[in-house]
């Protein structure tokens, strides 16, 4: 069965900028939610812009719905919907007017335009606000309208570029439910970029982790976390002079060689017996008289995967930020 999205050796290099996408390969199956996870500036949005035909690739091949994004742009656009970063809406138009514009530009038959628009506005819970100007919408309402507009022509594949950035938890959860419904109920393939670990974990059936334009890990969230292995324990001694003694005690319970959480202040080891060994760790520290200021067990997370692959933590790098913009090479020369 052909993939919904198939990318081989995709490169995007901007004229006056960096190599934003540096030879990525990926395959997204029909009906799948694929999470594209990475920090700001990793190349997520650039990849989406290439896959949605908005910018041409420098080299490599990308097929979306079986069509080549570089040569069959119009065919690709017929098959896809996209809600790009920063819901691009006109603050002077109402939600319903946006829908009217979108249904007309997508060429829906006149008889279907109003009913389809009303159906989608209702689906994203904006019926009561449909006749209000979008300038007065909250961030969550704008994102939901953006999603509804992307669905007007019943696309097979949906690209969502950081759909929940800046949203409050309630709006984020509502949008997650909608996206899940699209994939499970309507069979839409979803390509979702995010910088939120929990979003990728909760929504995506498979995750690709991108850093510096390259995919550093790919698989289901469970597989990726299993690759990391057992939980780790991290401890900070109450007296900084006890760091070596603390390291000696913790070394009995696991190996610190594959646990990159250790810092000049903290010692961390991956527990050989899983988190069941924590009680033994506490007893050993107590019997050796090593007082600790902070002791924490970390279950493997996608952040651990990112940390293991790049040596950096993803958490805190992008929270609340507005992600990587796509350099504009379309400025008229």
């Amino acid at each position: 069965m052909p993939a919904a999205i198939e990318v081989n050796g995709l490169v995007k290099e901007f004229k006056k900028g960096p190599r934003a996408v540096d030879g990525i390969d990926l395959r997204v199956e029909e009906g799948e939610i694929y999470g594209f996870l990475g920090p700001n500036g990793a190349g997520k949005s650039t990849t989406v812009h290439v896959l949605t035909t908005l910018i041409p690739p420098t080299s490599g091949e990308a097929l979306v719905a079986g069509y080549d994004v570089a040569k069959q742009g119009a065919e690709v656009r017929e098959q896809i919907g996209a809600a790009l970063q920063e819901a691009a809406l006109d603050p002077f138009l109402t939600g319903r007017e946006h829908m009217r514009l979108q249904t007309a530009l997508q060429g829906l038959p006149r008889a279907e335009r109003t009913s389809r628009g009303d159906e989608l506005i209702g689906r994203v819970g904006l019926s009561d606000a449909a006749d209000r100007k979008v300038g007065g919408y909250s961030g969550g309402m704008k994102r939901r309208l953006d999603l509804a507009l992307a669905l007007v022509h019943r696309p097979r594949i949906l690209f969502l570029d950081e759909p929940t950035t800046g949203l409050d938890p309630q709006s984020r959860t509502a949008l997650w439910e909608e996206v899940e419904g699209l994939a499970s109920g309507d069979g839409v393939t979803v390509f979702l970029t995010t910088q939120y670990l929990e979003e990728a974990d909760a929504l995506a059936s498979r995750v690709g982790i991108i850093d510096d334009g390259r995919i550093v890990a790919e698989g289901t969230p469970a597989t990726l976390k299993a690759e990391i292995g057992e939980p780790s324990v991290e401890a900070v001694p109450a007296d900084p002079g006890d760091r070596e003694r603390l390291a000696g005690v913790l070394a009995r319970f696991g190996d610190d060689g594959d646990c990159p959480r250790s810092t000049p202040d903290a010692v961390a080891v991956r527990l050989a017996r899983g988190d069941g060994g924590l009680a033994d760790v506490v007893r050993a520290l107590d019997s050796e008289g090593v007082a600790v200021q902070h002791l924490q067990v970390h279950a493997p997370s996608l952040d651990d995967v990112f940390l293991a692959k790049t040596g950096r933590s993803l958490e805190g790098q992008g929270a609340g930020a507005q992600e990587d913009g796509v350099p504009d090479e379309r400025e008229a020369a």
Binding site: L54, A74, R77, A82, L84, Q85, Q102, L105, Q106
Partner: peptide
């Protein structure tokens, strides 16, 4: 600037 043109560009306009 807001990306609205990109929204339009994704339609057959």
């Amino acid at each position: 600037e807001t990306g609205f043109l990109d929204r339009l560009a994704l339609t057959p306009m």
